[in-house]
């Protein structure tokens, strides 16, 4: 237990620093690029003096580091601020309203916006994982057991082709063929579970090669280990060795890929694919926020994504060390 405590303390401390640095990076970046957030909040029609006054009231004219300090203080209290452009009713005002005062209370809270979007993204990500594993586990294991033979080559070429399909193009081709032409599945927006299937397939095609490769390499590598023949000499059948020992040992690298690589791939592609399918998840929220320069949303989602990556990294490393104690942190 002492090991686990020490491990988590160290890694969480490191993770906090990373998240803080990323937050600072995004925060500074958003404030040094041209474009005044007050203009975005109040629209183009507002007089300069009002804009200036609002900016002062909101503290937007303070040095970046002061603003950042205040922002971190708010986050520590669980307050991620309010959207610049989205009203509390859900519609985006887009900064075109001719309102002459900015009333933060009628803007949607960032936490609320993200909380509505996260379940959609989780559904999509989960479904993509299920599809990818359903495809990759049988192919990967078969390829690993028959290393060098045709299943191995088949897995290889399939992976190469999957990796070569540009995700946005595949998404549009599927929308065109499956949704528009054949009418089998709906594609744009979200009105029910079936809307998540097509985007999940696109993500699964992107994830599957990563899984296939790591499963195949891991299984074939374990088969060559001495313990397999030792087990057979001791009277265990080959299939028993494979099912109970080889697969178990092959899990470690899979956990690793599942964790770091897959979540990394997913965090990137999920955003793009949600945008293509107009799927109301965190990615769509984020990309729209970038276009609308809705700083509080961009900051909060970047921090959230960074926290997810850090946590996944920590958990994967912890799981790996618990399964195989030879791996120290």
């Amino acid at each position: 237990m002492l090991f686990a405590l020490d491990f988590f303390m160290r890694r969480i401390a490191q993770g906090l620093i990373i998240v803080l640095l990323v937050a600072l990076l995004i925060f500074t970046l958003l404030r040094v690029v041209p474009g005044d957030p007050v203009r975005i909040m109040l629209g183009p029609m507002v007089s300069p003096s009002v804009a200036e006054q609002t900016a002062k009231e909101m503290g937007l004219r303070d040095p970046v580091l002061v603003q950042f300090g205040r922002y971190v203080g708010q986050i520590a209290q669980g307050d991620f601020g309010r959207s610049f452009v989205r009203s509390a009713q859900g519609a985006s005002t887009g900064g075109t309203r001719a309102a002459d005062t900015f009333n933060a209370a009628n803007r949607a809270s960032v936490i609320g916006l993200i909380a509505t979007a996260v379940p959609y993204s989780l559904l999509l990500a989960g479904l993509a994982f299920v599809f990818a594993l359903a495809l990759a586990v049988p192919i990967g294991i078969y390829a690993g057991l028959r290393s060098g033979k045709w299943p191995d080559r088949f897995a290889l070429y399939l992976s190469s082709i999957f990796v070569s399909l540009p995700n946005i193009w595949l998404a549009l081709v599927l929308i065109f063929l499956v949704s528009a032409k054949a009418g089998w599945l709906p594609a744009i927006g979200y009105k029910g579970f079936s809307y998540a299937i097509l985007p999940a397939i696109v993500l699964a095609v992107e994830l599957a090669p990563v899984f296939i490769r790591s499963i195949a390499v891991s299984v074939s590598g374990n088969l060559m280990e001495a313990y397999v023949s030792v087990g057979q000499i001791r009277g265990l059948s080959r299939s028993r060795m494979i099912v109970f020992h080889v697969f178990r040992n092959s899990l470690i690298p899979l956990l690793n890929t599942l964790g770091i690589q897959a979540v990394g791939v997913l965090l990137g592609s999920l955003f793009l694919i949600e945008y293509v399918f107009n799927f109301p998840g965190v990615g769509l929220l984020m990309i729209n926020a970038v276009f609308q320069r809705d700083f509080p949303i961009i900051q909060a989602i970047s921090i959230l994504a960074c926290v997810v990556l850090v946590v996944v990294n920590i958990l994967v490393d912890f799981a790996a060390t618990t399964i195989d104690r030879r791996l120290q942190y």
Partner: peptide, 23 residues
């Protein structure tokens, strides 16, 4: 190397979208 590890935890696509979206 700590810097390298830290970079691995940064959501790069988000960073890219933000940087390119606002510049």
């Amino acid at each position: 190397m700590r810097l390298t590890d830290a970079q691995m935890s940064i959501p790069v696509v988000i960073l890219a979208i933000t940087i390119l979206g606002v510049t």
